[in-house]
Design a protein around this nucleic acid. Structure first.
Lengths: 357, 357
DNA sequence: TTGTAAGCGTTATCAT
DNA sequence: ATGATAACGCTTACAA
């Protein structure tokens, strides 16, 4: 026997992290038996006694199966990607959180990334998700002209859209019934007696903006009213809301002549609207009725509390996660297009119009 | 030659996803050469011409290297875990976002999970992170009595604490100078003329609560004042703020007799404070001066706008990510304990005390 | 400069 | 019911 040959099977002190082989040795069985004993799906193939012995050895050694090795073999990473435009926008955390909770309960880890509404960045992130072999992807960042869907298809990543839809997409989506929602706002204002209602629309190319704009026009038509001025915001931000509001007021002297109420495409824009009103010594509710959309956290606390359309944040995250898992489990299953129904929340930013001056 | 032997090297139509072998075949080189050509670190080992040919073949085939396979080999996943108590708490999104952006730029993907302030859940999530072989972990959820640190150490996961420290921990941490910050609030109130100042403290066992409470007492002592009543909130939530505020007012009839100003341990608690004041027909600023901590998004918009201590949310995420990467690159390097310095933001919730009645 | 071969830690297939 | 073995897709000594 050659003198320097390593002694076979002389249990080496598990230097780094324990592996399945260490556990096998400790339990006096083969690695494949360990795998079977600890995988719930194959537990039945193994004797009760062995299963116990293995489990005991495993947690005595503090063994954690490597998701990398398992994933390499099974082609499943037990990881789901979530893409949001910007996690700081308060509507996303509740969605992401709800999705993460549900996914964690199913044993999935969640990869989160911000696209900054930048298509190039979005593509880069999708590629990275592909490299990490995510089992599925949730996208809240869809905007017209993106190649995201094709990219996901090419990588074979099951995908579900959240919050925003994509026109011709064949992807599952969980969104709000935006047309209906904005209609709620219009009806409320009409019921209060408003007749000239303006719209502060969202950025071009985003489904929520398009649907809410159309819903606005439609609701007015249904009420037999002519639409007031409509201005597009450059993005769903407070700053863009300010700019658009300035445009809407067109010049320094605002009179109630042109419109008495404003339906904004979302809450964030309303923050900008409030800024402009305040800077002119005007007050939402009193001088101009204002409605938002989303009922994002804390708009009940701003001054005046915002009348808005409440969407089901958590349900959106949950349903999207469920749809995704269903699609992963059954790739051939038909796609779902879920519309969550929003509701009107009346606060202090809407009132009957003042008497004409 | 046996008739049924598969033809060797007859390029099989790449059924699923392209692998490094497909690229190698397409470029007429060996897989190891592909690896070298595409890895920036080893690019130099390979001829310019070959590198080009490989790169071309790679993106013609749309090849994405599997992070699973690479990670299994290198024992690095290029993945960082982030643990937060609750992503819906508005102080965390900016931190997570800043960290994610920096990490993404360095080629890391980010695994995010919510602990719900539940130690058992926290341990479970750390284990899961270990299974996914994260290269490092950022924890914003540290609370007294957690085994998180030991767990990370056992798994050999480099860890940095964010926002909250842990008493005896040997881990790097990026936190606020909480004592100094709360001192700013106290000084401001004293300068306004307040002499009886109460404290609404954070939940037991959390470093931010402890430091702010001590900082509060210390600042009062420095000002030669006796501390007003101090009450602990059960958690950093609006509801807990409400409960604690009721306790502080002790009964239905509030008179300014007991204190004229309230220093709360964070902004979220102030929302509860506002609720209680409102329910009693009192007004922050007018009837009671109130200060918060964090300057979380939108507290500038609530009514009245909250005077608070602004922390550097984004810097916290960035610095923590940097510290973590540094530690990954140089595990032997000494730990850092970074304190970010907060600043006072004066708004309308603080004023000189009213005349005594 | 490039190819060869071994190995990372699992799971799936096959044999016993 | 369990063990042996190969394979997942990549990186990295080592050899040429």
């Amino acid at each position: 026997m050659p003198p320097n040959r390593p002694i076979p099977d002389a249990a080496p002190p598990p230097a780094g992290r324990a592996t399945i082989a260490d556990v096998a040795r400790a339990a006096g069985v083969h690695a494949s038996t360990v795998s079977r004993a600890l995988n719930p799906a194959t537990r039945g193939m193994v004797t009760e006694a062995v299963a116990l012995r293995v489990a005991e050895a495993a947690d005595r050694l503090g063994w954690r199966p490597s998701a990398l090795a398992a994933g390499l073999r099974t082609r499943k990473s037990r990881t789901i990607g979530i893409l949001v435009p910007d996690l700081v926008n308060p509507i996303f955390p509740p969605i992401v959180r709800a999705a993460e909770s549900l996914l964690a309960a199913q044993g999935y880890a969640t990869l989160v990334a911000n696209t900054d509404n930048d298509p190039a960045r979005e593509e880069m992130l999708i590629s990275r998700m592909a490299e990490h072999v995510v089992d599925g992807l949730m996208m809240a960042s869809a905007a017209e002209g993106t190649h995201a869907i094709e990219l996901c298809a090419r990588f074979g990543i099951p995908t579900v859209l959240i919050n925003r839809r994509l026109p011709g997409a064949t992807t599952s989506a969980v969104t709000n019934d935006d047309r209906h929602g904005i209609g709620l706002a219009v009806s409320h204002l009409v019921a209060l007696g408003h007749r000239r209602i303006a719209h502060l629309a969202g950025p071009r190319g985003v489904s929520t903006a398009i649907d809410r704009r159309e819903g606005f026009l439609e609701a007015l038509r249904a009420a037999g009213l002519d639409p007031g001025p409509v201005v597009d915001a450059a993005g769903y931000t407070r700053a863009a809301g300010r700019v658009a509001m300035e445009t809407l007021l067109a010049g320094p002297s605002f009179t109630a002549a042109s419109f008495t109420a404003l339906v904004a495409a979302n809450d964030m824009l309303c923050l900008g609207v409030y800024d402009v009103l305040r800077s002119r010594g005007l007050r939402a509710g009193v001088d101009l009725s204002v409605t938002g959309f989303n009922d994002m956290p804390f708009v009940d606390l701003i001054d005046p509390p915002l009348t808005t359309i409440r969407i089901q944040h958590a349900a959106m995250g949950r349903e999207a996660a469920e749809a995704l898992l269903a699609e992963i489990a059954e790739p051939a299953a038909p796609r779902r297009d879920t519309r969550l129904v929003p509701e009107l929340v009346i606060r202090a930013s809407t009132r009957a119009p003042r008497q004409e001056h």
